[in-house]
């Protein structure tokens, strides 16, 4: 029983960060129908921001989080302007954006590798290797803090989407772009803002990831599959779905890792992606894909 609770807690502790990693991907897909394969590489870029700030100046990665988010959001605006704006009217938009984000993922990995090498890194504030103990059960502080910060950020995002004027515009554009435009929403501006927020969330997730997982540029390939399975299970474009899926898969992966074997833990995500696409492609909270 104690072991069961221990594994459950470890799974839950990681669920929050994974949800944050996936939320930006989900938002960008919802508004722009872009499957941003470069999302994990941008998370890693955010992780390097936090890593070097800690290494060079001893700045806590959680303190560095807003900075990483802003830097990445700025990069997001640039990328949108350079890569996607003129594609928006293209009839081959979906193929083009998949190819573009794939190319971007390779490029970001190459650049990060050139600057920072392929050495495994991890930011190491004191709490990253510390834990709380409740009797026999331990809760790693780093994962706990990262999970709590992630949930706070996702909560803020949800409130923003639910109540702000821009939030209304983003949701409306996600659900019916033409209708939003007819009602006076500047959908182009909404796209830039949503993309910037999405990439900013990658930066924020990166700062947390930097002390929860070890990372290096090519780590993105493992995370792509993990995040894809999370956002697909959640129903592409649904933030709530992303959160629920992240926690579910993270807990399942923790149990698989303990009882079946560590290598099978990551396989959980790949297998889940495959099975979800086969039996319920619209995910838990998404709409049925149109059969046109």
């Amino acid at each position: 029983m104690a072991q069961f609770i221990q594994v459950l807690i470890l799974g839950l502790a990681l669920g929050g960060v994974i949800a944050l990693m996936g939320s930006g991907l989900s938002l960008v897909f919802g508004v722009m129908r872009i499957v941003n394969l470069a999302h994990p590489s941008l998370i890693i870029a955010g992780a390097y921001v936090a890593y070097w700030a800690f290494k060079l100046w001893g700045i806590d990665p959680i303190v560095m989080l807003p900075v990483a988010a802003l830097i990445l959001a700025g990069i997001g605006v640039l990328l949108y302007r350079l890569m996607f704006e003129k594609e928006a009217k293209s009839a081959r938009y979906s193929e083009m954006t998949v190819l573009l984000t794939f190319a971007l993922a390779m490029m970001v990995e190459g650049l990060l590798g050139a600057f920072f090498t392929n050495t495994q890194r991890v930011t190491s504030p004191d709490y990253a290797t510390d834990a709380f103990f409740l009797g026999d059960i331990f809760i790693p502080k780093g994962q706990l803090y990262a999970g709590i910060v992630s949930l706070v950020i996702i909560g803020a995002l949800a409130l923003f989407l639910k109540y702000s004027r821009m939030g209304y515009a983003i949701r409306a554009t996600t659900q019916n772009r033409d209708a939003a435009e007819l009602l006076g929403v500047n959908v182009n501006l909404v796209s830039v803002v949503a993309f910037a927020i999405g990439i900013g969330l990658a930066g924020a997730a990166g700062a947390l990831v930097s002390f929860v997982f070890s990372f290096f540029p090519a780590k993105q390939w493992e995370w792509i599959a993990m995040l894809m399975s999370v956002v697909v299970l959640g129903g592409m474009g649904s933030i709530l779905g992303t959160v629920v899926a992240a926690f579910s898969l993270s807990v399942i992966a923790a149990f698989v890792g303990t009882w079946v074997g560590a290598t099978w833990s990551t396989m959980t995500f790949f297998l889940a992606l495959f099975v979800i696409l086969l039996i319920r492609p619209e995910g838990l909270f998404g709409e049925k894909p149109e059969m046109a």
Binding site: Y168, A172, N176, D178, A179, A180
Partner: peptide, 21 residues
Amino acid sequence: PQERALFPKMTVRENLRMGGF
């Protein structure tokens, strides 16, 4: 338009608020 241009996953009240965006 013919498709009615509603936002299916927004509430009735939110749809009305979008009308006055």
